[in-house]
C-alpha cells in the first residue's frame, strides 16, 4: 500500500518525503509521470514521484494531482 485518500479526496503518498525507492517504484508504475522543472526535482532517481510535475508537497509527504 503506497497511497491513502486524503481529506481533499486526493491520493496521498504513504512513504513520506524520504522514501526514494518507493517514490521511484510508484513513478515507474505510473504512466502519467512528467518530470517537473529541474529546479523542483529533489530525487536522484530521474523517474520518481518526488520529481513529478503532478506531485504536490504536503507538510509530511505529497499528494498526486493526477490520479
Amino acid at each position: 500500500m503506497l497511497w491513502k485518500t486524503n481529506k481533499n479526496g486526493n491520493k496521498e503518498f504513504l512513504g513520506g518525503q524520504e522514501s526514494r525507492h518507493l517514490a521511484e517504484r510508484a513513478a515507474l508504475e505510473c504512466d502519467m509521470f512528467v518530470a517537473d522543472d529541474e529546479d523542483e526535482c529533489v530525487s536522484d532517481e530521474p523517474r520518481s514521484c518526488y520529481n513529478c510535475r503532478y506531485r504536490r508537497w504536503t507538510a509530511t509527504a505529497f499528494e498526486c494531482l493526477k490520479t
Binding site: D36, R53, Y54, R55, R56, W57, T58, A59, L65
Partner: peptide
C-alpha cells in the same frame, strides 16, 4: 512554508 492553509501549485517556492 508548505501548509494546508496556503494555496500553492505544487511546491510553494
Amino acid at each position: 512554508l508548505v501548509h494546508p492553509d496556503i494555496a500553492y501549485t505544487s511546491h510553494n517556492s
